[in-house]
Design a protein around this nucleic acid. Structure first.
Lengths: 167, 167
DNA sequence: CCATAATAGTTATAAACTATAATCATTTCA
DNA sequence: TGAAATGATTATAGTTTATAACTATTATGG
């Protein structure tokens, strides 16, 4: 019986790749799953001319009107310099406005525009329906577990290596 | 009582950013968690002069001696052209050897060297101990669930959007 | 009060990662 | 045998991420 299994394995010369060693690593699995999701999500957002970063930026501006660029950049774990061009784009497209803070003339508060609100609404719906189809193969319990575990991990990590989660 | 809570909230003007909307999105959570893990893993591998991609390449070559570049690239979801320089590096460092396949002179089989085996051993240990400390805050059951769910998602995705999981 | 440090936003730039087209040699197959 | 397909490569461009340095403004401690 173990023989027949070995026989089968031998019949597959190098055709199928054994990646069990990597499958055992949670970090690797999460990365692969994350990549697939991001790629899929990107396709969902593309018709709206949004990327992950512009989408999440819109969401946080809607939920935090008047927020400053640096706060937003920190929340999204993106370097401030790289975030400038993101905001530039959203402002240029009339989705977001920069208003100078009267109490601190260095800073700008970010606000959503009417067009931005419309796009936000559509995008949220698209992403949510995307998530549903993505997790269609999971039971309600599994989804709950996944969500809980991810949030727990994030909480744990955030308190440890707060800034600069990339590199 | 609700008053005192509101009072506290009011004392934090724009200091704390509300990102509940994003926290509700599993895709976003996974991405954030994945980013933290990759960044942390990178730090673990850096002393060995390995990156995630060179580490995973080493592992798969050890587990699949004689594997071809194109198979390996497909397994790791990296474009073949981008993979050439990875293998170049590993060969240059004496960790991996390319042997021409006698049955197909276009192809090379990839093999680990003695130095490669040594590094592989050390790296596997480092990554595993990294994973343990990473998941220290999860119960055994939670770890099991996490692993199971990730594998399930990966299985599901792979059969759907097999190639080109990025973009 | 003023010099110094710190902060918000920005510019410039480089490194790393990812994607695509095209080429060469070789193999497969009608 | 000729055309199509495959393995590896080169060249190249786009995207993302990181870092240093600058301007303007605000905060702080002597």
């Amino acid at each position: 019986m173990a023989d027949s299994i070995q026989k089968k394995l031998d019949q597959i010369p190098v055709e199928s790749v054994s990646d069990e060693s990597l499958t055992l690593l949670v970090g690797y699995n999460i990365k692969r799953v994350s990549n697939v999701i991001q790629s899929d999500l990107a396709k969902t957002l593309k018709p709206l001319d949004l990327r992950m970063i512009t989408f999440t930026t819109l969401v946080l501006i809607v939920d935090n009107p008047g927020i400053r660029q640096s706060q937003l950049a920190a929340s999204l774990s993106i370097e401030r310099p790289n975030f400038v061009v993101i905001i530039d784009e959203l402002v240029r497209r009339g989705l977001v406005t920069r208003k100078q803070d009267p109490s601190d003339r260095r800073a700008y508060g970010l606000y959503i525009s009417t067009a931005g609100q419309r796009l936000h609404k559509v995008a949220i719906r698209a992403v949510q329906s995307h998530e549903n189809s993505l997790l269609a193969h999971l039971s309600a319990q599994q989804r709950q577990q996944l969500s809980t575990t991810m949030n727990l991990l994030r909480q744990t990590f955030m308190t440890q290596h707060s800034p600069g989660e990339r590199s």
